[in-house]
Amino acid sequence: MTLAGDILQITALSLLVAGTSTLVATLIAVPIGTVLGLREVGSARLLRNILFTLYGLPPVLAGLLVFLLLSRAGPLGPLRLLYTPLGMVIAQVVIVTPIILGITMSVVSTVERRVKDTAFVLGADRYQLSITVLREAAAGVLTAIMVGFGRAISEVGAVFIVGGHIEGQTQVLTTTIITDVAQAEYGHAVALGVILLLLAAVIYSLLYRIQERTLP
């Protein structure tokens, strides 16, 4: 495989894995985070504490957990997802979901009570109420998704453990940089590092522009 082809494939897989994980995590975390953030009673507090613990979950630990789950000898072994991109996505969803959930919950809970009251008085039902609050918190929720994607694309421990860094199969930018450095392939490593940086810059500036449009 040519150097350029190899870099292209690694970059594409990195984007696919991090993007898919972020999308799935967003679909799980934003609705749940909104519902929990809207609750004002203390029952949500315990959950919030658990979440903030998960928030700090070391990615490597998530990787280990998912590895043990997906290994042939593990409970989900028959699915044969170890050392596959889907397995990596599962590990990253475990890492990213608490991050998006936690931030969404806290930005939704800081939306003024009066927003809910006003929407209620104007005739909103529960769903419309949630959407209204979510819309007011849009900048914060977008930040949550940005942070989640940033964590996913730069994460290395979990994708290494669960993906196995198989050439042409589960190599991503971060894991390849690690093995490149071990092999003293510094030029290749730097090229991948620059791509990682550019990707982050492009995606962040894109999201930043969306975020700007959602300002009051």
Partner: peptide, 27 residues
Amino acid sequence: HFASMRQYIVVLIIAAVVALAVTAYLS
């Protein structure tokens, strides 16, 4: 805007399903 929010959600879901499908195909 409630309808458009539904559209956003549908677009997000479609994007996630497509991404998952590609990932699953590779897996």
